[in-house]
Amino acid sequence: MTDFIKRLMRSPQGAIGTIIVLLVLVAVAFGPYLAPHDPEAMSILARFKGPSADFLLGTDQYGRDIFSRLMIGARSTVIMAVVATLIGTVVGALVGVTSAFLGGRADEVIMRTVDAVMSIPSLLFALIIVNLLGSSDINALLAVSIAFAPGMARISRAVALSARKQDFVSAAIARGEKPNFIVLSEMLPNTVAPIIVEMTIRVSFAIMLFATLSFLGLGAQPPSEEWGLMVSEARRYMHISSWILVWPSLAIALVAIGFNLLGDGLRDVLNPKT
């Protein structure tokens, strides 16, 4: 484990990604305790303030401290993305691995159907589901999970198939091992790594997707501190102060970059070839 972390920190992507993601996780866990101001405390006198010693990143249209709002908002933004990606990955991996295991016609039908679902842009898919089910956190979560599942299914299937072709799996079959041993003990340990890498990178897409949903008014609702919603609300006041627009945008980008970098770092470390 320590060796693993050492190797992860050796690559620039891995090191920067880990640091960013750790900082984000700190904000998620302790955001409410670390926020210097009450994120809902409004002040008519302190509207549209630029960054200062008191208000690190300035204030918004109601005079609320932007930094505090971002700290609180980390929770809803990041946790939702991680959970949705997790659900999408589990569902997708189940479909993909099953399809690879079944093989033949069943595999073909399943994968063609997955392809068909993928021909609907995931944003559109999520938009429709959220709208039809009503905009709430749970529905948004569901929408993004469903939108992610087909892509993960494709990847897990490809990974499972390549593991299936390995000689050590052939050796296990020739030895007379039971199918569940082959899948769980021989194939799974060799498929988890690429799936984890893909999942990490997808967290950043999920963050962007949730933010987009909120931006279009179909995710989190005011006065939530969700970052996409903050950008959306700031749009009306951007002529007065660009800070209120820039900070939440940067926050979204930073977290997305963090997960992207971490994913690439993990890819290098988990690749047995290196």
Partner: peptide
């Protein structure tokens, strides 16, 4: 299965790298 065993060409591929 016990009486008939097989050995493959590439030992790299025939041993599970994670065991």
């Amino acid at each position: 299965r016990r009486d008939v065993q097989i050995i493959f060409q590439h030992p790299d591929a025939s041993l599970n790298p994670r065991k």
